[in-house]
Design a protein around this nucleic acid. Structure first.
Lengths: 161, 161
DNA sequence: TATTGTTATACTCTATAACTATA
DNA sequence: TATAGTTATAGAGTATAACAATA
């Protein structure tokens, strides 16, 4: 029986910026997840390490708030990262209910690898653009991100990872 | 006790195009889901209706392939959309195992509303840009989408919805 | 009484594989 | 034997709420 030829129904022509952003954003997120997966990390764990590196002493509650994660999920992530000696829990002297989280030397070293991975990822995603185009793209995207009130550095989809 | 002031740790300055794309893409996808949710549809259902409208007679298997959905999921989506009389199943005369899917009049009418919602969504996402900037953004994004082999019109995250 | 971190549990979702009918 | 569509089910993942320690 003659199968109908699988002609592409549409080109990218007819899709607007919003749909292209969704497509590329999902693609970029997936690829980033694969890349940090090679460091045995998930994207939300990367977000946690980054934030703890920037604000040593942060509590688990604060982490959950900033990243939009459930506190119970933060527990299991911190459990794992502590077990791998990437970060350390220490009871706060001022409020003995909270843990102050800090990166270990090992954790700080891993942050270096993460930064390398992120740079390679960024280069790969924007590969077809020259420097001027890349800069222009970033400028436009930054305008949109600010307009929509997106928090710098926080992936809005962590809740589900 | 004096709580530390919650100063923003970073600005958008230091984040590259890839991360901005992830953020904006996730945001755009979420907002689009909310908008079509008002039509009692999910994004993958919208993708199905759109595809059936373009290629009447498509099989469920072909739908699953094109959209990256599990066949079992297509069954339940088609069940629901058929129940709402947005599309119709009819057995193929040539191969009685397959269903040929077509939009009903009601389904075609709903596609009109979907197109309106999509246009409003696109306008909202790109609101802070003027026409020239919007066109430039689309041009850059299209280059990236083509470079990464993304299929026009197909959200790569349908698998998980 | 409220909050931090933790644990347990009910719930949903997903993927896989088994099944039927046709080919 | 292979494929389209369907159904059932086991496993994973999520959110909720209950809990102990401290404020």
């Amino acid at each position: 029986m003659s199968k109908p030829v699988d002609t592409p129904v549409e080109s990218h022509q007819q899709f607007g910026a919003a749909f292209l952003l969704t497509q590329l954003g999902t693609h970029a997120a997936t690829r980033f997840g694969e890349r940090v997966g090679e460091l045995a990390l998930t994207p939300p764990q990367v977000g946690m390490l980054r934030l703890i590196g920037q604000r040593p002493g942060m509590s688990q509650q604060a982490l959950a708030d900033h990243l939009g994660l459930l506190p119970s999920k933060v527990v299991s992530f911190v459990d794992e990262l502590e077990g791998r000696e990437l970060l350390a829990r220490s009871r706060s002297a001022r409020d003995r209910r909270v843990y102050e989280l800090t990166l270990t030397d090992h954790g700080r070293a891993l942050m270096g690898s993460i930064r390398e991975v992120a740079a390679a990822h960024d280069a790969a995603i924007t590969e077809p653009l020259d420097d001027a185009e890349r800069a222009h793209l970033v400028k436009l995207l930054r305008r949109l991100a600010e307009h929509h009130g997106l928090t710098p550095g926080v992936h809005p989809g962590y809740r589900k990872m």
